[in-house]
Design a protein around this nucleic acid. Structure first.
Length: 576
RNA sequence: GGACCCGUAGCUCAGCUGGAUAGAGCGUUGCCCUCCGAAGGCAAAGGUCGCGCGUUCGAAUCGCGCCGGGUCCGCCA
């Protein structure tokens, strides 16, 4: 039984026993058989639902089947006790030797413990993808953290992961950016700007001070040669320069959060090298694009609505509610068309599985994109929608007002509470649930701050290990029998399974909760030693017991560290 | 009008893809530092899992219908 994931290993044993009792069960029945940790230690270490799942298809009584499983599994060397319980559960108590053997296994594997076997499967996680028109604001934060940690988690689970950022540098937004930069350019030259601004359709859209140095840089480089010139002389150059500077700024913001993408894909490059046509051609070849007229949205009645023939994608064939336009009335492509092409490009790079991490305001966009991917490749697109984050201080929502200058930019938040707290707390909720981000809790040095609590547990581990002498030779772990010690081991062996399950569900927040529970177990173990000196880790005259406990503490530190690594949170050595 | 997300202790939230007596923190009450980090731990109290039907051995979890909160709904990205 070499599998790091003991639950998977035991599940294998259960299936063998089940096959002997009820031969020839269908694969989809067997797939529902699971071996899970028990909630109550009185139920042993693990439980399986095998008898209840198999009872009906095998035409047997679940309790009888459970009794049969107990008989077979009891003979297994790694199982100390098996018993039937409740409606047909089989509870398993592992042999102490097997349980204790997990400690040296963790110590040898170090942070690789819990690493899933390579799935030889590429997966692409796209996240952040904020428009390159300014610094990141707090609204981008959750997606950045969730996407980055999810990518780490998938990598931990054995996928070949690409972290990707889609740069929307082709649309009207970046043209507006270029025009705003032009105003700053004129200002840098001490030239009047009112006359120019009056000619811009939307006016000065990006008035933030962050564009001032960009305008100055362009003035320094080009002097006044673009002043008073028509757009077609300078627009392209200004756009390219500004986008490049914006992306530098965004990369800096992300770096401050510990987020680093492998690939930055340019929408403009895709458009200019014909990628949009290539992507759409795939759909045209399948007869999925046609000219038609959409019904008006029911009940809403836009006042300027009029029936119009346009190019549509047959997304309703793939689960969407209605077909979606790919071209605007002026003939240019919609954002959706470009995005179809972009996803086609990702698929074409050899990624069968795609994940987009988006803000909740893109919710209405999910079905059509999933339909497009299905149509393009038959592949799977998971969309993680991150709901709104409300920043709270002293029980009051913090106003996100540019004029008031409070907490607009992501950088403000990081400066206030630090990157570790931002990352951990963003993962203390499911992505699809709205959350309150409590600034007071984020900086608290108490249990109510999960980051602190987990880092403190790690610091305590390190504190013990610093005080201890490294044991030499084989360590005998059989002295670890106290309830708190056993609970600790039971938690540790859950880690490989948690990685697998959280990755499968695409739910990085589960790692944060696991770490919190793990830290809680460790603090309880620590305090058991405070109440009962015989349970302290370091025992002067008992080298065997001491070595065993040091091993347990070291294993705990390893799992804490590898979990924190998935979240991108720093495992601190001490908390002075 | 329609689509998607959410509704669990007074508050903020978990609940391992349908399992056993629904959990944690904060808040309330009571305990534990001559001793490896008390920045911690232990215990008590607190629940019609929004409401109602249904599916089945079994539902907080799945389906349908309501109620409440959020996001969105052709030529923005």
């Amino acid at each position: 039984m070499q599998d790091e994931n003991l639950f998977a290993a035991l599940r294998g044993e259960v299936l063998i026993a089940l096959e002997a009792l009820a031969p020839g069960l269908a694969p989809d029945v067997l797939a529902r058989v699971e071996v899970t940790p028990t909630k109550d230690p009185a139920h042993g270490d693990m439980a399986t639902n095998a008898a209840m799942i198999a009872a009906k298809p095998a035409s047997k009584n679940p309790r009888e089947l459970a009794a049969g499983l107990v008989e077979k599994l009891s003979t297994h060397s790694s199982i100390a006790k098996a018993e039937a319980a409740g409606p047909g559960f089989v509870n398993l108590t592992l042999s102490p030797a097997l349980l204790l053997a997990q400690i040296p296994l963790i110590l040898n594997a170090q942070e690789a413990y819990g690493q899933g076997v390579s799935k030889s499967r590429k997966i692409n996680v796209e996240y952040v993808s904020a428009n390159p028109t300014g610094p990141l604001h707090v609204g981008h934060c959750r997606g950045a953290v969730v996407g980055d940690s999810l990518a780490n988690l998938l990598s931990k689970a054995g996928y070949d992961v690409t972290k990707e950022y889609y740069v929307n540098d082709a649309g009207a937004q970046v043209l507006a950016l270029a025009r705003s930069v032009y105003v700053r350019y004129l200002e840098a030259l001490k030239l009047p700007t009112e006359a120019y601004i009056a000619t811009v359709p939307g006016g000065m859209q990006y008035g933030g001070g962050y564009l001032v140095p960009i305008g100055e840089a362009l003035a320094a480089r080009h002097g006044d040669k673009f002043a008073g010139q028509p757009e077609d002389i300078w627009l392209d150059e200004f756009r390219t320069f500004a986008v490049s500077r914006m992306m530098d700024m965004i990369r800096d913001d992300l770096a401050a959060l510990g987020v680093r993408h492998d690939v930055f894909s340019s929408e403009r490059a895709l458009v200019e090298n014909g990628g949009v046509e290539r992507g759409l051609q795939v759909l045209r070849d399948k007869g999925l694009i046609y000219r038609g007229i959409l019904e008006p949205p029911k009940g809403k009645k836009p006042e300027d609505w009029e029936p119009r023939e346009q190019e549509l994608f047959r997304s309703s064939d793939f689960g969407d509610d209605v077909d979606r336009p790919i071209a605007k009335s002026d003939g240019s492509y919609t954002y959706f068309a470009n995005d179809i092409a972009y996803h086609a490009d990702k698929v074409g790079r050899g990624c069968p599985d795609l994940i987009d991490v988006l803000g909740a305001d893109h919710g209405g966009y999910v079905k059509r994109m999933q339909a497009a991917v299905k149509a393009l490749s038959g592949g799977r697109l998971d969309v993680i929608l991150c709901q709104i984050v409300k920043v709270m201080k002293n029980g009051e929502p913090v106003k996100m007002s540019k004029r008031a200058g409070t907490f607009v930019e992501l950088r403000d938040l990081i400066d206030e509470v630090g990157p570790d707290a931002v990352r951990f707390l963003m993962l203390m909720r499911k992505a699809d649930a709205q959350m309150d981000f409590d600034l007071n809790a984020a900086v608290a040095q108490t249990r109510e701050n999960p980051v602190f609590y987990v880092q403190y547990a790690h610091a305590r581990c390190r504190s013990v290990l610093r005080a201890a002498q490294a044991p030499s030779g084989e360590v005998d772990f059989s002295s670890l029998t106290a309830p708190e010690e056993v609970a600790m081991i039971r938690r540790l062996i859950t880690w490989p399974r948690l990685v697998e399950q959280a990755a499968e569900a695409r739910e990085p927040h589960r790692v944060a909760f696991f770490l919190y529970d793990l830290a809680s177990d460790f603090h309880a173990l620590w305090n058991a030693g405070r109440d009962n000196t015989a349970l302290r880790f370091l025992q002067e005259d008992k080298p065997v017991e001491t070595a065993a406990r040091i091993g347990l503490v070291a294993a705990t530190a390893i799992v804490l560290r590898s979990g924190l690594a998935v979240l991108g949170v720093n495992p601190v050595e001490e908390m002075r």
